[in-house]
């Protein structure tokens, strides 16, 4: 099963998130992550949803999504080069004395330690999903107490002509 990143432009109406989420359930799809936020145009929101399925299933999902009245357009970003970013906060077991050691680990990832407590600290990392996964593996040996991730925000790269993206 391939992973897909789908961008859904919607009217910022009450209940629109429920409609989209319900459709995934109704059609037998799982939402791996979802982010919702404002767009370049007032009154519209953009949802970035990552999900799994073969091409035929994803095509069907996109068509069904487009049937929702509040959905304006649906684009499968995965079909062309795209930029994807996620933010994670990771609370790691560590004493202040381990700060320098941990800084050495997080710096190559351009991550930062944003809070230090007596027995734990918080790492903030931004990047694509794989990068965050990679850092997590390294931090796990210290003990991850809590993890929160935003899910991906994503955008097609500018070099791709707009017409080339598969849009329903």
């Amino acid at each position: 099963m391939q992973r897909h990143t789908i961008s859904v432009l919607v009217n910022d109406q009450p209940g629109v998130l429920t409609r989209v989420a319900t459709l995934f359930g109704q059609r037998g799809f799982n939402i791996d992550s979802i982010t919702v936020g404002g767009t370049e145009e007032q009154g519209l929101s953009r949802m970035i949803i990552t999900t799994g399925g073969d091409d035929r299933q994803i095509n069907q999902l996109m068509k069904q999504l487009h049937k929702l009245i509040d959905v304006i357009s649906v684009t499968n970003l995965s079909e062309n080069p795209f930029v994807s970013r996620e933010l994670a906060l990771i609370k790691v077991t560590a004493s202040p004395s381990q700060l320098a050691e941990l800084n050495g680990i997080v710096e190559p990832f351009r991550a930062a330690i944003v809070d230090v407590g007596p027995s734990s600290l918080i790492v903030q990392v931004t990047g694509d999903t794989e990068k965050i996964d990679a850092l997590l593996v390294l931090l796990q040996s210290y003990g991850v107490i809590e993890l929160t991730r935003t899910g991906s925000v994503a955008m097609a790269r500018s070099i791709v002509p707009a017409t080339a993206a598969a849009t329903v």
Partner: peptide
């Protein structure tokens, strides 16, 4: 009822 009927309506409105 708008929530209950989301999967079985073409569309629905709650009038605020």
């Amino acid at each position: 009822i708008t929530g209950i009927t989301i999967p079985i309506t073409k569309h629905s409105y709650f009038v605020r």
